[in-house]
Design a protein around this nucleic acid. Structure first.
Lengths: 198, 198, 198, 198
DNA sequence: GATGAATGAGTGTTCATTCAT
DNA sequence: CATGAATGAACACTCATTCAT
C-alpha cells in the first residue's frame, strides 16, 4: 500500500518539478510575456491540459514558482544568521549570502526579478513573503537605536542596502561588462555600509 | 507650396504626438502587456492601420516613445549643469533634477520603467542613449582623479548613485508608504554621497 | 455468497443513485451545457472515471436519468387510474396527478424539460417510453367513439390536453408571475376540456 | 464618393447576412450547443476572427439572430391586422399568419425555439421584444370585457391560444407524423377558440 | 496619407474519455 | 471496483499585421 502510494507521489512530484523548471527556463529564455502555457507544457514534456491538473490556472503556476524561489532565497540569505555578531558583520553575511545565492541560482533570481515586473507581480501576497526578512529588519532597528546606522526612512535604507544588488546582478549590457568577483562584491558592500552607517 | 507642405507636416506631427501620448497613457493605465496596437490606436483616435504609416511595427512605436522620454529626461537632468562647481554640488544638482523630473512626469517615468522590463527592453540601442549622460560620467572620473570619489568599478558607483532612485520612486507597496518629500530626497542624496565619496 | 453479492449490488446502487441525484441537481443549478462529467462526478462524490464503470459514456448517464424520471412520472400520472369513471373525470384525474407530480418534483420535471431540448433529446427511444401512456390514449379513443371528444388528429388533442401544462409550469418570466394554485390548475383543465370536447 | 461608400456597405451587409444565415443553418443542423464560433465562421466562409469585427462576442451574434427573426415574425403575424373585425376573426387571422410564417420559414422558427431553451435564452430583453404583440393582448382584453372570452389568468389564455402552435410545428417524431395541412391548422384553431371562448 | 475590414496564428482554458494502478 | 493522472481536441477570443480602397 505504501509502495503504491509512493509511486503515485513520486510521479506527481516529478511532473511538478518539471513544470517548475520549464517555467523558470522559458521565462529566462524568452521572457514573461512570451512564456505561454502551451510553450511551458512543451518544454516540460507534457500536454497543456496536464498543467491544469497541477495548477488551477496560469497565474497559480507562475505565482507558485515565484513563491518557491522566494522561500528558497530567504533560507539561503539567512544561513548562519548570528544575532550576537556586530551589526556590520551580520549585514555583510546577509549581503554575501545573497550574492552567493544569486551567482549559484542566476536563473531563479532572474525569474523573480521578471516576475515582480510582470502583470502577476501585484498578485502575490507580499506581506506573507516579506515576513521571512523580519529578522534583518530587526537588526537595522537595533543599529539605529545604537546610533550605528542613520535614523532615516526605512525605504531609504533598503534602497542602499539591498536594491543595488539587483542592479549589479543585472547591469545594462554595456561595452565593459561587470564582473561579479569576490572583490567587487566586497567593495560594493563597503559602499552600502558607508551609505547607511552613521 | 511651402505652407501646404507645412500643414501636412503639422498634421503628421499631431498624429505622432497623439500616438505617443496614447501609448504612454495606456501603458500606465493597463500595463505593457495589455497595451495592444488597436487599443493604442483607439486611444489616439486613429485607425490601427495608421500606426503603420508612422512606424514600421509595434516595436518601433514603443521604442520611439521610450527614446523620446529618455531624451527628455536627459535634458531635464542636465539642466543648469555647471562644470565649475564642486563635484558634490554638481551631482546633487543632477540628483535633484532627476527627482523633480520624475515627480512632474511620473507617467513618462513609469513608462520607461515598464519598458525596461518588457520584451522590448533589450531592443533599444543603449549606446546612443547613454551618450547624453557622458558629462556626468566625466564628473565622476574627475572626482576619482581628485581622490574625492572611491576608485571602484563604474557600475558600482552607478548602483549607489542612480539606481536607488528607481527604487525610491517605485517602492513595493507596503503598509507604510514612502513620501517623496524634499527632505527625504535630500537625505537620500546624503546616503548616496556617503556611499561613493572617499 | 448471496449476501456478499447483495452487499456489492447495494453499494453499486448507492453510487448509481448518487450519480442520478447529482446529475439532476447540477442540471437544475447550472444548466445542461455546463454540466460536465467531472462536475457531476464531484457532486456525486466519485471520480470521473467511476462514471464510466456504471455508464458507457456521458450520453448513457443522461439518457438513463431521463428515462428514470419519465418512468416515475408515468407512474404518478396513472395513480388511481379508474377506467370505469366518466371520461372527463379520468382525464381530470390525470391532469391533476401531473400537476401534483410537477409541483412536488419540480427538479425532476425541469430536468426532463431541459433534456428534451438538449442534443440528447433526440437520442432517446420515444416509442418505449410513450407506451406507459397507452392507457390514456385508449381513453381518448373511447371518447372519440362515444362522440364525447372531437375526432381530430391525435397530435392536435395532445397539443391542447397536455402541452399547455409544460407552458404553465415554465412560463416566460414576465412582470406578473403565474401562480400554480389549485384554482388556476382546475381552471386550466376546464379550458383543456372545452378545447377537446365535442 | 457615394459609390465608394456603397461598395463598402454592400460588402459589409453581405457578410452580416452570410453570418446570420450560417448561424441559423448550423443551429438547425447540429443544434445550439455544437454550433461553435469556428463552425459558424466556416459555414459563412469567413475567418473566425472576422465574426468579432461584426459582433462583440458569440452571445451578440446569437442574440442578434434571435432578435432579427423575432422582429420578422412579429411583422408577419400582425399582417393585415384589422381592429374592427370580430374578435374571433382577428385571432384566427393572427393564428393563420403565424402558421404561414412558420411553414415558410421553418428554419427561422426552429432557431428561435432552440434559442429560447439555450443558455442564451435568458439574456435577451424580453420586455422590448414582447411589445410587438401588445395589440394582440389588447384584443384579448377587449374580448374579456365583452364577455366573449373567459376571464382567467392571461398565462392560461396564452397556454391555449399560442403555445399549442409550438407543439404542433415541432411534434415528437412518432410513427404517424403530423401534417401541417390547411385543414389541420383550421381545426386546431377551432380547438383553441373553444378553449378560450366563454 | 488614411482607413475599416480581414485574418492566420496564437492565447488560456475546459471537455469527455482513457490509462495505469 | 475504483480512481487520480493524463491528454487530444475543441472552445471563445485577441493579437499584430496586411490589404483594398
Amino acid at each position: 500500500m505504501i509502495v503504491y502510494f509512493r509511486t503515485m507521489r513520486t510521479k506527481d512530484e516529478e511532473k511538478r518539478a518539471a513544470l517548475f523548471e520549464a517555467t523558470v527556463k522559458l521565462v529566462n529564455e524568452i521572457g514573461f510575456v512570451a512564456s505561454s502555457v502551451s510553450k511551458i507544457a512543451k518544454e516540460a514534456g507534457v500536454s497543456p491540459a496536464t498543467i491544469y491538473v497541477y495548477y488551477k490556472n496560469k497565474e497559480e503556476l507562475l505565482v507558485s514558482a515565484y513563491s518557491n524561489i522566494k522561500l528558497d532565497l530567504s533560507k539561503a540569505v539567512l544561513q548562519d544568521f548570528d544575532d550576537t555578531l556586530p551589526i556590520r558583520d551580520i549585514l555583510k553575511k546577509v549581503w554575501l549570502n545573497m550574492f552567493r545565492y544569486i551567482l549559484e541560482n542566476i536563473e531563479y533570481f532572474r525569474f523573480i526579478q521578471q516576475f515582480a515586473h510582470s502583470p502577476y507581480g501585484s498578485m502575490v501576497d507580499r506581506e506573507s513573503l516579506e515576513q521571512h526578512f523580519v529578522q534583518i529588519r530587526n537588526v537595522l532597528e537595533r543599529g539605529i537605536e545604537q546610533k550605528i546606522i542613520k535614523n532615516v526612512d526605512r525605504h531609504i535604507l533598503s534602497a542602499f542596502l539591498y536594491h543595488p544588488i539587483t542592479f549589479l546582478t543585472n547591469p545594462p549590457s554595456t561595452r565593459e561588462p561587470f564582473e561579479l568577483s569576490e572583490e567587487n562584491i566586497e567593495t560594493a558592500f563597503n559602499l552600502a555600509w558607508d551609505a547607511i552607517k552613521l
